[in-house]
Design a protein around this nucleic acid. Structure first.
Lengths: 238, 238
DNA sequence: GATACCACTTTGGGATACCAAGTTGGTATT
DNA sequence: AATACCAACTTGGTATCCCAAAGTGGTATC
């Protein structure tokens, strides 16, 4: 994490040049989500300026946006990468349960079930050789894409934002292979219920999946609290 | 809406001076929600600078925040006050139903029911002499405060933000006195169910209330579409 | 009269200068 | 050695300046 005073002007997938603000926002978000900047770490606008070769105007705009995402928070005067907050993780799970269940119930009423195939293909793209990072991403995208199918933008954004907030914690989790396989199985079961148009079953399975994941996540983080703190990560107890 | 080049540095309830950014954000939000700036109207950073006597940095920060609230949106190059979008209103109602029902179910499990009294008192503070504007505010705050009781910050914020987005539309609605009384009655019925700890009943009543309100709101706006457009308000059809 | 063209204005994006408040490190005093 | 104090530095908040691009209006040409 050494400042390199080199302007990096990223380009989006269309090849068009992003604004400095978007560039800084994107890169900083990736550094935070990728734990290159640890939870609880202090941020100064000046450091970000030098690190990304941008001036303060786009840096501050990016910080404001990341604040609304909950990835950083004000620390009196100054900015801090949001700590991992176990109480918050539990609350998010309840929130997710509400919006994801509502979304999946909507999705079950859809006539066109073919879009389910895309999600199933995404799940099946993971096998024993797939790196953990990819499992992690697919596990998140499953929930996000499933919510997108509901057609309700607010439910979709709620799920996407909640998964973003959970992302770092899920990555920190000391997760054994069995847990990954378990999630994979549960995801498939949920999809099967959606495909059958069985809203009640899909809702029940999804709800149990979310709450179960939460419990394992919180337990895992709680047990590994010391290890995480030793790595310099701020973990706030529930 | 004439620019008056006078710096207005508002103060918050603590008497401490707000930053320019907060001041601009607050005042601009009030102008938008109060329909002093109509839905669909164009905004320029320069106009806001002059209007509030602030410079561009705080103005741009305020605009970024209001964008995440959905009150304004980018218009290519430039900003526009978000139009009233009937399709969006319908989606928000589904979103509200999900989060508010989840919140009220949590609230029903609370042991301390005395906090319910505060909300009931708020409802009862409205009578025949109360101005419409106050009825409007209390009607929104009922839902927000009920969600706050759940103790879940994400559900609370979701409800608060959704109500903010609905605010302008509800204010535009051509609402007869009977509808106001109807909402008041339904609010009381919901509170009674919560007080009795009857989560299923509370959920059912709240759900019906939200969906019923949505249908009346959308119908009202749809019928009055021409009148609203004549007032210069952009209303996007569902 | 219609249209192509060009100078001028306005706009948002960015860079930088300045300021007040808060830290920090060193120094003089006890 | 402990402490009170002060100067220099750092930081976020703000104002201002510059720039490229998009819009605008007038004009010359056909």
């Amino acid at each position: 994490m050494n400042p390199s005073p080199v302007a990096v002007n990223a380009a989006d997938t269309n090849g068009t040049t992003m604004s400095q603000m978007q560039s800084v926002e994107k890169q900083l978000r990736e550094m935070i989500l990728g734990l290159e900047i640890g939870p609880g770490e202090r941020l100064t606008e000046r450091w970000i300026e030098r690190r990304f070769g941008a001036s303060r105007t786009p840096v501050r705009a990016a910080l404001l946006r990341l604040e609304t995402e909950g990835l950083i928070c004000r620390d009196g005067r100054g900015w801090t990468v949001s700590p991992i907050n176990l109480a918050e993780l539990e609350q998010i799970a309840v929130y997710r349960e509400a919006v994801e269940v509502a979304a999946v119930r909507l999705t079950c009423t859809l006539s066109d079930k073919s879009v389910i195939d895309d999600i199933e293909a995404m799940l099946d793209s993971c096998d024993a050789d797939t790196p953990r990072e990819e499992w992690h991403r697919v596990g998140m995208d499953f929930h996000i894409e499933l919510a997108r199918l509901s057609g309700n933008d607010f439910l979709f954004r709620a799920v996407r934002d909640a998964m973003t907030r959970l992302s770092r914690a899920r990555w920190l989790e000391v997760r054994d292979e069995a847990a990954l396989g378990r999630a994979w199985t549960e995801h498939h079961a949920i999809l099967a219920a959606v495909r059958a148009g069985n809203a009640d079953a899909a809702a029940r399975l999804l709800s149990a999946h979310i709450i179960g994941s939460r419990d394992r996540l919180v337990t895992s983080l709680h047990n590994d609290r010391r290890g995480l703190r030793a790595r310099g990560f701020a973990v706030v107890a529930a």
